[in-house]
Nucleic acid binder design. Structure first.
Lengths: 161, 161
DNA sequence: TTAACTGCAAAATATTTGCAAATTA
DNA sequence: TAATTTGCAAATATTTTGCAGTTAA
């Protein structure tokens, strides 16, 4: 079965090798933000004839094609996720390293406004909140935007302060 | 004369060596976002008995002390700026690599609200807009927040899309 | 005096690349 | 078949670290 990212590759006229197909599938199925080493690990489970150099080359290619986005949540390794239909941002729990995704309409509009004020069109946005879980958590109020489940993979190294 | 950052170091009980004093001064006087190599270059002009290892150790120390903040604007090298009194964010011109700082009250409030909704207190924020200058620039409207002058140092390597 | 700091060079970490062989279109 | 892609290992690039000597407090 053709994965979503494989389809995007074909649309862009990229040559589909076995390795590239496997990497595309792994990326399509990821719901977290894996780094290259993790992608390599997952890809190698499906097809051991894949080298880490190919994974590096592939994520770079896909990033250049606008199919993937590179993230940096601290920890030294770049992490990747598929370019999303709707924008979303990240809140990183500095104690556990968990990443929570969220979306916010108001933010969207505000950033456009700020950029316009400075004479720019926004090409991409990086918005990351580093926070700490509240001791006395608020009783669940009106959640305009429900958070997606946090991912498992913890960050290596200490997060920026 | 004691630089601002040197004073902060002393307040925190750090031992003030000649090298550290010079690095503190260079950092205090920087109005841009230098990387370690650039800091080393500037420091070495004032005192050639400084090694780049010391610069690395010093920025890490100062970051741990909350005196400096680490930034990543693409290009592979971490960049540093003194922790600010008021928060501000960055807009990176993807064609020239220039960094424009801006502040925005509304953003501030909004981010607090988003974090609160998810049950977090914000410890720090990373907000970077990557944009392209408008062809037909708007006639200067009401600028609630004036931009600070863009910095000179161009980014090495291609910026994230 | 001594705990903290430094320079140097080597190590560690992450990513890129040259090249010959393999593969897709 | 031709142009692209791959694996391997070596090369790069950035940052960290061990250690012996130096220095601030």
């Amino acid at each position: 079965m053709e994965s979503r990212i494989e389809r995007l590759c074909v649309e862009r006229g990229l040559k589909m090798t076995g390795q590239r197909r496997v990497i595309a599938r792994v990326l399509s199925e990821a719901s977290d933000h894996p780094n290259v080493e993790e992608l390599y690990r997952r890809a190698a489970l499906l097809d051991s004839r894949i080298s880490i150099a190919t994974v590096y080359r592939t994520v770079r290619l896909l990033e250049e094609q606008g199919i993937l986005e590179k993230r940096d949540f601290g920890g030294g390794r770049a992490r990747y996720e598929a370019t999303e239909h709707g924008h979303h941002y990240h809140l990183i729990d500095i104690d556990t390293g968990k990443v929570i995704e969220f979306a916010d309409e108001a933010h969207e509009a505000l950033m456009q406004a700020v950029a316009a004020r400075l004479g720019f069109d926004i090409v991409s946005v990086r918005l990351e909140l580093f926070g700490r879980r509240r001791e006395a958590d608020l009783p669940a109020g009106d959640q305009a935007t429900a958070p997606r489940p946090a991912e498992e993979a913890a960050l290596q190294g200490r997060p920026p302060r």
